[in-house]
């Protein structure tokens, strides 16, 4: 039995510990906001936070997160009707096209802004390595800068 937290709730998984966290979240806990894109850590669609840091859940065996805390896109905002500032920035620039990669892009950006609150374009280029097949990169770049502004203004969640 592997016990850990997902979005502040205590959970346990009693299957094979080598199962990637991605599939545990999707198939066992029905948290389908975290997406499968490549399975080898290349695309970032599966990005979640483990103890607050962005990780590729497709490459993380569930046994490795015993006792740790996982945040997924479903648990990113403080409350059900609220948005994290990064989500709010994403809506302001209407980033999504197909939308499939965007949960991962948002989780990666939240992590980036924790480490570099006001990233330059070069910081974005170096740190945001998630793939968007639709090509929303132009809007993602603007939304990251906007999210940095929103966080600097107060950092609290907006609805």
């Amino acid at each position: 039995m592997i016990s850990f937290q997902v979005n502040s709730e205590n959970v346990a998984f009693d299957g094979d510990g080598s199962t990637p966290l991605l599939w545990v979240l999707r198939d066992h806990f029905n948290l389908t906001g975290t997406k499968f894109g490549c399975g080898i850590g290349q695309c970032g669609a599966c990005t979640v936070h483990i103890n607050g840091a962005a990780r590729r859940s497709c490459m993380t065996p569930v046994a490795a997160i015993k006792g740790r805390s996982v945040t997924t896109i479903e648990g990113l905002a403080a409350g059900n009707d609220e948005l994290h500032p990064v989500q709010a920035a994403w809506l302001e620039y209407d980033v999504p096209q197909c939308g499939y990669c965007q949960a991962g892009q948002i989780m990666a950006t939240v992590d980036l802004l924790q480490r570099i609150p006001k990233p330059t374009d070069a910081d974005i280029d170096k740190n945001i390595r998630n793939i968007c097949r639709c090509g929303t990169y132009a809007r993602i770049r603007k939304a990251i800068h906007k999210a940095a502004e929103l966080q600097a203004e107060g950092g609290s969640d907006v609805s």
Binding site: G33, T72, L76, P96, G99, Q102, I106
Partner: peptide, 15 residues
């Protein structure tokens, strides 16, 4: 339906 996308609520085929 962008709000559903950025909050992870949208159901794709895979979901």
């Amino acid at each position: 339906d962008a709000r559903d996308i950025v909050t992870g609520k949208t159901k794709y085929g895979i979901d």
